Computed example of a mutant assay.
Amino acid sequence: MSKDITKEIPSGSWDSHMHVVDPGLYPLSSSAQYTPSPHTISQAMAFESSVGISNIVLVQPSIYGNDNSCMLDALKELGPDRARAVVTFDPEEIDEKTLQEWHTIGVRGVRLNFVSVGKKVEKEELFAAMRAYANLIRPFDWVLQLYIHMADIPILAEIVPDLGVKVCIDHFGQPTLPAPGSDDPFAISGDPYQLKGFSSLISLLKQGNTYVKLSAPYRLSKQPDQVDLEPLGRELVKVAGMTRLVFSTDWPHTRFEGLDIRPYMAKAIEWCDGDKILVDRLFRSNAEDLWGVKR
Rank of each mutant, 00 (worst) to 15 (best):
P10T: 08
S11I: 15
S11W: 13
S13L: 10
H17M: 07
P23S: 15
P27Y: 03
Q33G: 10
P36V: 09
S37I: 08
T40Q: 14
A44H: 06
M45Q: 10
S49E: 14
V51D: 02
V51M: 09
P61N: 00
D67T: 13
D73A: 15
A74G: 03
P80Q: 11
R82Y: 03
R84T: 04
A85T: 03
D95F: 15
E96D: 15
L99D: 15
W102I: 08
H103F: 09
V110Q: 11
V110T: 10
F114L: 02
V115M: 14
S116Y: 11
K120C: 05
K120F: 12
E124M: 04
E125Q: 14
A132E: 07
Y133A: 07
R138E: 08
D141L: 14
V143W: 00
L144V: 03
A151N: 01
D152Q: 08
I153Y: 00
I155F: 00
V160W: 05
V167E: 13
V167I: 09
I169W: 00
D170S: 11
P175C: 08
D184W: 09
F186M: 08
S189L: 13
D191C: 06
G197N: 13
T210M: 00
K213I: 01
P217E: 04
D225H: 13
D228K: 10
V237R: 03
A240I: 07
S248F: 15
T249C: 08
D250L: 12
W251M: 07
P252W: 06
H253I: 12
T254E: 06
I261W: 14
P263I: 02
Y264G: 02
Y264K: 08
E270A: 07
W271L: 01
G274P: 11
G274T: 10
E288Y: 00
K294Q: 09
